[in-house]
Design a binder for these strands. Structure first.
Lengths: 166, 166
DNA sequence: TGATACTGTAAGGATGCCTGTCAAAATATT
DNA sequence: AATATTTTGACAGGCATCCTTACAGTATCA
């Protein structure tokens, strides 16, 4: 009987903290949108609000910024066009592309959302203190980059071993 | 023409930072699990690893801790039982409940995962400094609670208004 | 004992994102 | 100029995740 002992974690895994916070934030944004009179808002729309530049963007660029595929982003965008938040028109500078912009109604929706985000920023800063809140933001903003680097390094090591073996 | 001006955000929304970090962490955990010889691991399993206590837990409790419904947690648990990571047996102290525990194989999987988590904790602490990393953890651990409180307060205000009007 | 609350589960649906594929347009290569 | 490659948005099909609604069994308490 080779019973494996589970190492006792002295504290909750970081991933659990991030995941829990993320679920709460996603829910909060949609719920607030609904309360503000925009019942058409869905969680997936957050990816657009976070990546669509004020003067318009291409779907492909937005997909890269959001970290999802072009197809997925395109689907979300078409959905938001259908409910009147976004508009698409051919990009005059590139016949293949279409320029995604907010509709007039979409600008109102986005403005309401940004107002709520600003409110949250202030509440968080007040709750945790400007300094600690900024620290948390700084840490979070670098997590993805670090993980991708470390993962790539491990990939390199594995393929190097494969290369020697093969 | 009442054109709505979009407020320019001075920095990325907090929700965008958390979402991006979360995606990266979820991907990293699953990828690492696969590399360590556990190809059966899926992203949804993280919710279990993060909430199942070493001596066993009830599904309902785990659902609350993970921030998802009992039904969803139950589905994930049954999936992990099917692939041999978890075991379920009746709770001797409560005829309604079942006690979820790791199987022997599951303990090995979890041990590998926890080892990776510990490695990440150390890398993060080294990268950001113990103090800043702890600060980020502390901030994140309170986000859900705060949002739920604020949301409840807003609900109260709305229903109070409804009450007066009705 | 009966009302109420909590357990896990089932069924069905909505959502979000994926892979594979395509045509059209732009760009690079020959 | 002709061809090959890349890039664009779109469509089809599918899987994973989580939800809502509903239910039967058990516990708890008036």
């Amino acid at each position: 009987m080779s019973r494996v002992d589970l190492p006792r974690l002295d504290r909750k895994p970081f991933i659990a903290l991030v995941d829990r916070a993320n679920r709460a934030l996603q829910t909060d944004m949609v719920q607030t949108g609904h309360r503000r009179g925009h019942p058409e808002l869905k969680p997936a729309h957050n990816a657009v609000f976070g990546t669509l530049l004020p003067d318009g963007s291409r779907a492909a660029d937005m997909a890269v910024r959001a970290g999802i595929t072009r197809q997925s982003m395109g689907e979300v965008i078409r959905d938001m066009v259908a409910v009147g938040i976004l508009e698409m028109r051919p990009d005059p500078e590139d016949g293949r592309a279409k320029l995604v912009t907010y509709s007039e109604h979409g600008r109102q929706v986005a403005a309401d959302g940004y107002a709520h985000l600003k409110d949250l920023e202030e509440r968080f800063a007040e709750e945790f203190g400007e300094e600690d809140y900024d620290t948390a933001r700084r840490v979070l903003s670098r997590i993805a980059e670090l993980l991708e680097r470390w993962s790539a390094e491990e990939d390199d090591q594995l393929s190097a071993v494969d290369g020697e073996a093969g």
